[in-house]
Amino acid sequence: MTALGQHIARLISETGPISVAHFMALALGHPKHGYYMTRDPLGAQGDFTTSPEISQMFGELIGLWIAETWIAQDRPSPFILAELGPGRGTLMADALRALRAVPGLLDALRLHFVETSPVLAAAQKQNVPNATWHDRFDTLPEGPLFLIANEFFDALPIRQFVRMERGWCERFVMLDDDSTADVPHFVPAITPVPLASDDLLSPSVRNAPVGSLAEVSPASGAFAEDIAARIARHGGAALIIDYGHAKSAVGDTLQALRAHKFVDAFETPGEADLTAHVDFEALALAAKAGGALAHGPVEQGAFLHTLGIKERAEALKAKATPEQARDIDVAERRLTARDEMGSLFKVMALTRPGAPGLAGFEG
């Protein structure tokens, strides 16, 4: 068992079962042993690959979207360009390269990263050395905010509830009967006392059949509301890209990835990436509470096609070797095809009410 597993086992032994959200927060963010604190999880040698690592086209098109949105909002200067959970900084490096073509934009932007992982922050400083780093969103400076959050919300902790005959009961993590001090085994268990109120759950799932499992992410809602409040005060836009569902729905989406393979989410805390599907309907409601308007979500494939990924691919292939051209075609398909990332991944934008229309969200 991992060192973090031993720590969680002691915590449960001393205080009782912990929520799935608490388990997830420790597994990913424990200051010493948390998954994101100890490694670069990206790429072939890691556990998963994100869109910016698949192709430069992704970050370039996001950069052009930022530019078009900035121009439509009368080119505020200065403005904050921020990214939440920037990975290795690959997306932003590609976006900044595209932004060089826009007169006045680079002089106006003030670049900020929100990152809690020291390992990834070190990689970001190699790729984008001119940023300012924060470990909390609320320390970003005030001003017009143009924000990118690519595969950020899926890693925020979730709570899980199961519909029982007695009502919605929360799912906790406990030690099973076979656990020992040296080899603890974590299993989910249902609390005997139902929720005092169903208000935490989306109205569309409250009356789900007995046996249904519903997920909520208070952390995601808080982030979305805070981002929305910034944009409502100062203007700008946020672009949220992640995998998930457009409407709130029941279902267990908690998953763990290790070496690009699915593993038991409770088996090796701190050694596997834990994520859950993003509830975009819940994000939109949180954004509305913060005073912003939510656009979308739209499917990633449709969004990238609207921004011109096909044309960008053809331009790159015109200067490529045959092998490079094949790689570009593979990357485009992976990002946009419905049986790859094109449908499961969604894109949502937040703006002030009454702001100009946004590329990729027409209609």
Rank of each mutant, 00 (worst) to 15 (best):
L105G: 08
A286P: 03
G5A: 14
S55Q: 08
A325E: 01
A265K: 03
P218F: 03
G235E: 09
R75G: 00
G301A: 05
T69F: 01
D279L: 12
A359F: 04
E83N: 06
G87A: 14
V278K: 09
A44N: 14
A219N: 00
V347F: 03
K32W: 06
G270I: 11
L344N: 01
A320N: 04
A108I: 08
D107V: 07
L201C: 09
L293D: 06
R166D: 10
L106H: 09
W65N: 02
T321E: 09
A331F: 01
L307N: 05
H7S: 12
A359C: 07
K125V: 07
G63S: 07
F361G: 06
E215L: 07
V128Y: 13
R338S: 11
M37D: 08
L81D: 09
G354A: 08
T15E: 15
A82Y: 03
S217A: 12
G104R: 12
A44L: 15
A331M: 03
A224N: 06
H30C: 03
A313Y: 04
P297F: 01
F161R: 09
F23C: 03
L120W: 15
T321A: 08
P322E: 03
S55W: 05
M174Y: 04
T275G: 05
M57F: 06
E267Y: 02
D138A: 11
P188E: 13
A44S: 14
A72I: 01
Q160T: 06
G363L: 01
A67S: 13
W65R: 02
Q6D: 13
A232G: 05
T38A: 14
G291W: 01
P157Y: 07
A318N: 10
M164F: 02
A214P: 06
G291Y: 05
G29H: 13
L105K: 10
R334S: 05
M174N: 13
S217Q: 00
W70M: 03
L304S: 02
S220R: 08
L293Y: 02
A9L: 11
